[in-house]
């Protein structure tokens, strides 16, 4: 679930408001997005992928953390913008799609029935 919109990094471009498929954000009075419908966050990381300044942090847990994580620590260890980096979005990066040669699903054992 989305935990952090960094006030230090956010440039009020509204991109996350636009791309969030479940409409979690609203524009705040000062332009910084607010999490009006946070319960609707489905932890899909798309806002992180699209944020041009790595200002967002989506925690992998489907429920809110008891206290928000430490933004500075996340910034230090590269967790802010990690998804965008991993899929190779952003200037000077190689699209992750180009590197995505992973293992095939071994279908010799029969079809998925669940």
């Amino acid at each position: 679930m989305i935990e952090i919109v960094s006030r230090e990094r956010c440039i009020a471009c509204d991109k996350c408001i636009e791309v969030c498929p479940t409409n979690v954000f609203d524009r705040g009075a000062d332009g910084i997005p607010v999490l009006t419908r946070r319960d609707d966050c489905q932890t899909c990381f798309m806002c992180e992928a699209y944020c041009p300044v790595d200002a967002l942090f989506v925690d992998p847990r489907s429920h809110p953390l008891p206290a928000p994580p430490d933004e500075r620590a996340l910034a230090r260890d590269g967790s802010l913008g990690a998804y965008r980096r991993q899929i190779g979005w952003g200037r000077g990066r190689t699209p992750g799609a180009k590197l995505a040669v992973g293992p095939a699903l071994d279908r010799s054992t029969g079809p998925l029935t669940s």
Partner: peptide, 10 residues
């Protein structure tokens, strides 16, 4: 590299 969105959450 094939599935960053499996490993990133972990």
């Amino acid at each position: 590299q094939a599935q960053p969105n499996y490993f990133l959450p972990l």
